[in-house]
Design a protein around this nucleic acid. Structure first.
Length: 479
RNA sequence: CGAGGUGUGGCGCAAUGGUAGCGCGCUUGCUUUGGGAGCAAGAUGCUGCAGGUUCAAAUCCUGUCACUUCGACCA
């Protein structure tokens, strides 16, 4: 116990204050730093490396589904932003504007992109003329700016890094299929790469994207039961196409409007990783995106042969893993704690005793279990432990999701569950936005997360108004 | 955007009108090294910023900026 206490002295316990725990972890793991620009953060090397790994994994999945990367300008002329009415109403309140270029006031002010639908549309108008030009499957990696009033590292910042996919299709069916396909790509990525199980489904009209006909979402749950909108995929129909006058000649030689989608995930995912997997000792990174998958800690490194052997191990493992040898003169205990805070999945201890026995010690970040293994079978043992860490993270997250998902059939029950248990609440809904407003009002913040793809019939009537229910909705509080 | 709180070395804090200090961290050296090591010697401050009151301001007053808590807002 005394030992445990020592380990965590720099990180606030998540049970004591989850928000403070989050901030502590983000700082101690050296993911980011604050900058002098309000609401903007600095990605430090370790934090940026996580993003690079996420990018590489996701980008491969986008390419595998036929998408190409492009890059659009970061400025949007005001007149362009205003073409689509719902869209501009949704984003105008949080736009940053450039009004001066060099020494002169601009004749038209430029919005720093909060999202790039309008820019893509302007371009699509120029390049889409025939059904032969479709589909257009584009993606862009960039940063966007939204002037948020309350910011938190990774979860909500004024500028954030993301990818935005923008596609154009001949038919509504094809576009709808694309919308769902990309949500599935996100879902698989969350599960396979981030070890995060999540609920997927459709947003209600109240919560959907400004200008979209339908918005689909992936909603992972954080360790404390709070939801995070983890990614969205939108079906636009031909609304933007009409607003931007994008037409093509179809197979029947008629002028048609193409059907459009967009989809995005952001560096907010890093926040999800932290809050889904972390513990009181700090971060725990899923092996597939961990910048360091295994760290080698030499024991008694001043003794002859230790560092040489450790370097040999590093070179050997580097062929297969992202591996680091810490041969700094920090104490051994300090190193142990340091890499636990940084969430390195596997620690490899190598000391004089091990070298004598042709072995080393593997330690799992999740369980802290120590395992003495022969150097002859090191790769297979590391493989096994990395896989084990991934599986344990998935199992833990699944368990948490199940344990913190509740049902309610009456409003009183709903309020009681929210107040005393928190987490996700499954409840029936009549389809009326008035009930969403009322629930948000009465609970002080609970909103519909989504209408899940996997609906259940909990009762015949809306949990709020008692009128016939149309859907089951997953409700919850969010970051 | 509304109400509260906080700004002092890199970080955490002390100093309630009278010469700015402590812990951690940092630097150097030696001893250590299987769970955040020990000893010794060092370095680091226009007290967030701008005004004002006073013989004298980290301290009191005004403004401003930033951070933070709770609300509102947040595809």
């Amino acid at each position: 116990m005394a030992q445990d206490k020592k380990l965590v002295e720099q990180i606030t316990s998540m049970d004591v204050d989850f928000a403070q725990w989050y901030t502590d972890v983000v700082k101690k793991a050296e993911l980011m730093d604050y900058s002098s620009v309000k609401g903007c953060m600095i990605f430090r090397p370790y934090g940026y490396a996580i993003w690079e790994n996420i990018q590489r994994e996701l980008d491969a999945r986008f390419k595998a589904t036929g998408h190409e990367n492009v890059y659009m300008p970061m400025f949007i002329p005001e007149s362009l932003l205003q073409r689509e009415k719902d869209h501009v109403e949704g984003f105008a309140p949080e736009c940053a504007w450039v009004t001066i270029g060099g020494q002169n006031e601009l004749s038209e002010r430029l919005c720093v992109r909060p999202t790039s639908e309008t820019l893509f549309c302007e371009h699509f108008k120029n390049i889409i003329h025939s059904y032969r030009d479709l589909p257009k499957l584009y993606n862009q990696w960039c940063s966007v700016v939204r002037w948020e009033k309350t910011t938190r590292p990774f979860l909500r910042t004024s500028e954030f890094l993301w990818q935005e996919g923008h596609t154009m299709h001949e038919t509504a069916e094809e576009a709808k299929a694309e919308t769902l396909r990309m949500l599935k790509v996100y879902e698989d990525f969350y599960f396979d790469a981030l070890a995060i199980p999540a609920i997927t489904g459709q947003k209600t009209d109240k919560e959907k994207f400004a200008g979209a006909e339908q918005t689909y979402t992936i909603e992972p749950m954080m360790h404390n039961g709070v939801a995070l909108q983890g990614g969205t995929s939108h079906y636009f129909g031909d609304g933007f196409a009409k607003a931007f006058d994008i037409t093509f000649t179809d197979r029947e030689n008629k002028v048609s409007y193409p059907h459009q989608t967009s989809w995005g995930v952001s560096t907010r995912m890093i926040g999800a990783i932290i809050m889904c997997h972390g513990d009181d000792s700090g971060l725990i990174l899923p092996p597939k995106i961990a910048p360091i998958q295994a760290v080698i800690i030499p024991i008694a490194q001043h003794k002859e042969g230790v560092l040489e052997k450790a370097a040999e191990l590093r070179d050997r493992l580097a062929a297969k893993y992202r591996v680091k040898l810490d041969d700094s003169d920090q104490s051994t205990g300090w190193k142990f704690s340091q890499y636990e805070m940084k969430g390195v999945p596997v620690r490899i201890e190598l000391g004089p005793r091990d070298i004598e026995n042709n072995s080393c010690v593997l330690v799992s970040r999740v369980t802290r279990e120590k395992k003495v293994v022969s150097l002859d079978s090191l790769e297979s043992e590391v493989d096994a432990m990395l896989a084990q860490v991934h599986d344990e993270l998935v199992a833990r997250a699944k368990k948490n999701l199940a344990a913190k998902t509740h049902t309610a059939t009456t409003l009183d029950e709903f309020i009681d569950v929210d107040k005393n248990q928190g987490g996700f609440i499954k409840a029936m809904w009549c389809g009326d936005v008035a009930c969403e407003d009322k629930i948000k009002d009465i609970t002080g913040g609970v909103k519909s997360r989504c209408i899940p793809f996997k609906e259940e019939k909990l009762s015949d009537v809306c949990v709020c108004c008692g009128k016939p229910a149309k859907h089951m909705v997953v409700w919850g509080r969010q970051y």
